[in-house]
Nucleic acid binder design. Sequence first.
DNA 1: AAGACGAAAGTGGTTGA
DNA 2: TCAACAACTTTCGTCTT
Length: 307
Amino acid sequence: MAQSRFIKKCPECGGINLIINKDRGEMTCKDCGLVVEEKMIDFGQEWREFDHEQADKRRRTGAPSSWTKFDKGLGTDIGSRGDIYQLKSKERNKYFRLKKWQHRISTAIERNLKLALAELKRVSSFLKLPASVEEEAARIYTLAVQRGLVRGRSMESVVSGALYAACRRHEVPRTLDELSEASGIDKKEIGRTYRFVTRELGIRILPSNPVDYIPRFASALKLNAETQSKAVEILEQAQKSELTSGRGPTGIAAASLYVAALINNEKKTQREVADVAGVTEVTIRNRYKELLRELNLKDVIKKVEED
DNA sequence: AAGACGAAAGTGGTTGA
DNA sequence: TCAACAACTTTCGTCTT
């Protein structure tokens, strides 16, 4: 018990791969995406206030601006029912005029954004994505709408594409399959819009690193931490031998895990690993063969089998 | 009987003329 | 815009444990 105060574990899955996002002051679990600790940074005010007058003078901010609100939370609502009856008729007319305009303005783009952001929140909470990713995705989507990139595509597919891109940028990659399952959009469709949107918006995304997939796959397979770090070790060797370029990152991650499991006597079938990683057994076999050949792991495995 | 292996044909995307 | 191409998948038969 005393130990747990010092070694931080994810309360959701017990994972130990907690990553800190300094920009947002969040600590997220890389295994399941749970936001373990929010607001590690003190966002409190640095002054004190003793009465309303002082407060009014010293406050200089409003609610935080967020891309997940369709107007970044900056919009003004005109009038709330109740106080208009204290107004004279002239004032009341003005109120209704303004109210009408507000209604007119919030059409097309904004209504679309509202709907889309609701969908975005639904999908991202289904996948347990950290808020920083959700925010990024909302930003990308908003830009896409402003450039008219949604026309001719379904709103949902663009939302998924934006989320996928945001995941990649924040190095918490989800596979297209996972996105597809969460959003109900066809995998190919998501891939297409993802590529289109990132190209049009000039968003540069590095090819995803296979290592980023390891923790999540490993915990899905219930492999222990040693196997996990062994897999990472194998991956790093593979990258040095240039076995990784041009290959699908999930396939390589899966193969490394498979080998690592063999070495640590935690054997999983190719089928099991393949299902978790969203690739076929054949792909694992191909990568696995390459790994054995290039890294001289054959002897290592033989040794393990003899034990 | 289940898992591992590998050959062959098919798919969707990228690239270069 | 089209054809060649590389990676990956699907399918299926064979071998191993």
